[in-house]
Simulated assay, not measured.
Amino acid sequence: MGLVGKLQAETLIVAPADKFHEMFSCRPHHISNVCPEKIQKVNLHEGEWGTSGYVIEWNYNIDGNDHVAKQIVEITDGENKSITYKFIEGDLLKKYKSFIIVVQTIPKGDATWVHWTLEYEKLNKDIPTPIKELEFLVLVGEGVDDHLVQA
C-alpha cells in the first residue's frame, strides 16, 4: 500500500454554488456558528478572509475528539468556485507528511455539486487512510447547505 493518496467525494446540495463557495472561501469563521458540534472556532492568523494566502486555525471535533489544524488557503478561485487548504500545523500532521483539502462547488442547472478532494502523504504505512476526515467534511458541508437554504 502506498503512502501517497487521494480521496474524493461528490455531494449534491440545494444551496446556490456562489453562496456555498463564499462560506468556505470568505467566511469560514461563520461555520462554527452553523456546525458548532463539529467546528468550535476558526481564527484568522494572517492575511484577509477570502484572499489567497490567508492563514487560519480551526478547532474541530471528530468522533468526540478535539483537534486543531492550521492551514494556509493557497488558492481561492472565484471563477471555478474552488478553494485549496494546505495544512501547515496541527494534529493531522502528526500522521501525515502533507495534507491538502480542495473544495469545488459546481453549479449544474438548478442543482449544485460539491466536489471534495483530500490529497495526503502518510508518515508510514500504518497510518489509516483519512476516510473519517472526508466523512467529516461532507457532514460539515451538509450543515452549511442546510443553513444557507434556511437563510
Results as ranks from 00 to 15, higher is better:
G2R: 04
L3G: 05
A9P: 03
E10P: 04
V14K: 14
V14H: 13
K19D: 15
H21G: 00
M23Y: 00
F24K: 00
F24H: 05
C26Y: 08
H30M: 13
V34W: 05
P36A: 07
Q40P: 03
K41Y: 14
N43V: 14
G47V: 12
G53P: 11
Y54F: 15
V55H: 08
V55I: 14
E57K: 10
E57L: 03
N59M: 11
Y60N: 00
D63N: 14
N65M: 13
V68M: 12
V68R: 09
V68S: 09
I72Y: 03
I72S: 11
I75H: 02
D77L: 03
E79L: 09
E79V: 11
S82R: 07
Y85H: 09
F87K: 00
G90I: 06
D91A: 03
L93D: 04
K94I: 07
K95Q: 13
Y96T: 02
S98L: 11
S98M: 11
I100P: 03
I101W: 00
I101L: 05
I101K: 00
I106S: 01
T112M: 02
T112E: 02
E119D: 14
E121A: 01
K125W: 06
T129A: 08
P130R: 03
K132C: 11
K132I: 05
L139N: 14
G141L: 03
E142C: 00
V144D: 02
H147T: 01
Q150T: 12
